[in-house]
Simulated scan of single mutants.
Amino acid sequence: MPGNLLKNPHGDENFSNWELTKNDENPWSIQLMPDDSVVSYFCTSHNPCLKKQVIDLVKSGYDAEYLDSAPEVTVKDWYSTRGDCGGVYRLTVSLLNENRAVIATFKPADVTVPQATPWTQVTDTFKGYGPGLRFISFEHGGQDTNSWKGWYGVRVTGSSVTIAPKP
């Protein structure tokens, strides 16, 4: 069961496995990189764009006993901006119990990202959060800072959620 629990982290399968939770007038786009650094990425527009996956850990093969031992959960995400427009990046990751009540949350402050920011990684590891983990909610996105129509906002790709293996 090791490896990334998020499906379609680069947009290779369009928006498959993602719920578009905020996708107004000018929605998300998927774009290809002009080089080999990243194959594809999700791009936000001038309106707030958010997308989410909720991972069912039991369906993913984890047993309740192991999940109740509070294994370390590591989340990673990558963001960047275009050369001509800045963006705002948002991330919220929540550990949820069987009723989908929040056990713990990682929600850094929104990041205002200047134009031409190279790919930047955000990472966090949940530790010591107690028993009850059954689901993980991963939501991210953002928008541009100039309110330009089109896909000038923050870009996201390479998202991952991993759980430490049993010792």
Rank of each mutant, 00 (worst) to 15 (best):
G3E: 07
S69A: 14
T92R: 13
C85F: 02
P27C: 02
T74S: 09
F135I: 12
P131E: 14
N14M: 10
S94L: 05
S40I: 01
K149D: 11
T92A: 06
V93Q: 03
L95D: 12
T44S: 07
D24I: 13
Q31I: 02
V58M: 08
Y152I: 00
S45K: 03
G128Y: 13
V58F: 08
L57E: 05
Q53E: 13
D77K: 04
G141Y: 06
G158W: 04
F135Y: 15
T145K: 06
K59D: 15
V156E: 11
A109V: 13
L133Q: 15
L91T: 01
L67M: 12
V88F: 03
G141E: 02
S160D: 04
V39P: 01
T145I: 11
S137G: 03
S147P: 00
E13Y: 13
K76D: 12
L133F: 04
N17S: 08
T120P: 09
S94E: 15
N4R: 00
P108W: 10
I30K: 02
E25D: 12
C43Y: 07
D63Q: 08
L67T: 07
P114L: 14
H46I: 00
T21Q: 09
R90N: 06
V93L: 07
N146Y: 13
Y41H: 08
A101P: 02
T125Q: 10
N99D: 14
E13R: 08
S160R: 01
G83Q: 05
T81H: 02
